[in-house]
Design a protein around this nucleic acid. Structure first.
Lengths: 186, 186
DNA sequence: TCCGACATGTAACTGGTTACATGATTTG
DNA sequence: CAAATCATGTAACCAGTTACATGTCGGA
């Protein structure tokens, strides 16, 4: 695939950045749907520059420290646009250790299974809170500014996902409880 | 992490299997939340056997063809149970090329963005149909049999996820349409 | 007799993480 | 002056995919 290159091109299309800046973007604005460490970003920038999709000028911060300010080239913009217009397949089913655990949970006591579910629920609720907090950062909802608008859409997606995870976990907990009650019944 | 080993141990805990059988299980019952190709499974079985978590006896199918029937050892069961009882972290945010595309979609025409969203929606709806069809395979809902019960729970999770994806995409489409209407308004 | 399923493995490569390595600048 | 942050890179490793490689068995 090589999706990382488009993530970088997309960011550089918004504004010129250093590898360090890009790394921070992956940690913040993109973190909901893509990630990359600096150890992956710097080599990628190098090959991108070699292929003339980006270019850089070396700047001096302070007295000595060099930094490379990267910008997207016209050729890079063309490549980005081509990708941006294409249909993509739905994301491959993500691996989920908890679901695997749940799938095999017939080998542990019913009460313990419920505890596992509750623990998972708590973690998702916490994350959901964090996402809802991010929602308050927009001054209008939905935001009017174009760049903020796509931020908003993907944030909605993240919130949506967490909410549905919580719903599912609650359903599971209830089903397990019912089941446990029935068993102790007989 | 090394989660693959627990997936294999979990399956072998249900019944003895060959590497070939395991491969099929990953393609079917586990496919919603874990995957592995035979090229990964066979080496893993080898190391698992070396560590005495599983053992195998060689059987002959027909006249010559050898197959290795693997079974979990007591030690393997202990290891599996230990994993099964532990709290796991929520799955790492899965990479999602479509969300990345949407995030950068301010560089393409509004109508085209809507087309991308609609295409994604169609794909998710198709998959959802498939999952709902799987739901009809249980004779009672929720099923009473213990092994079927956890199948059922994870299937609910998958359906839940697809439904919420569809909801989100519909929301996005509506927001984009509204936005487009407003713009042509001025 | 041919084809699809059964059956098992290895090799090369890709994407990504963790750790190694270094050093400058700013701020408290 | 110490600590956090800025800044850039490489190396070793791990999980996973694709391709290579081989051969048997059962049924149409």
């Amino acid at each position: 695939m090589g999706v990382l290159r488009y993530a970088i091109l997309g960011l550089l299309n918004r504004q010129d950045m250093t590898g360090y800046d890009l790394t921070k973007e992956f940690q913040t604005s993109l973190s909901e749907f893509w990630s990359a460490k600096h150890s992956q970003i710097y080599p990628e920038l190098k090959t991108l520059a070699e292929n003339h999709l980006v270019e850089f000028k070396t700047e001096i911060t302070g007295n000595v420290l060099e930094k490379k300010l990267y910008s997207i080239t016209e050729f890079g913009k063309k490549e980005l646009l081509e990708w941006a217009e294409n249909y993509t397949k739905i994301p491959p089913l993500p691996k989920d250790e908890f679901k695997l655990q749940l799938f095999f949970s017939d080998c542990i006591p019913a009460q313990q299974r419920i505890q596992l579910l509750k623990n998972q629920l708590e973690q998702h609720q916490k994350w959901l809170e964090h996402l809802n907090h991010n929602l308050t950062k927009f001054d209008t909802v939905p935001p009017t500014k174009e760049s903020e608008f796509s931020d908003y859409l993907v944030l909605l997606g993240a919130i949506n996902r967490e909410e549905s995870s919580c719903n599912w976990l609650n359903t599971c907990i209830n089903l397990c409880k019912k089941r446990a009650a029935k068993k102790s019944d007989t």
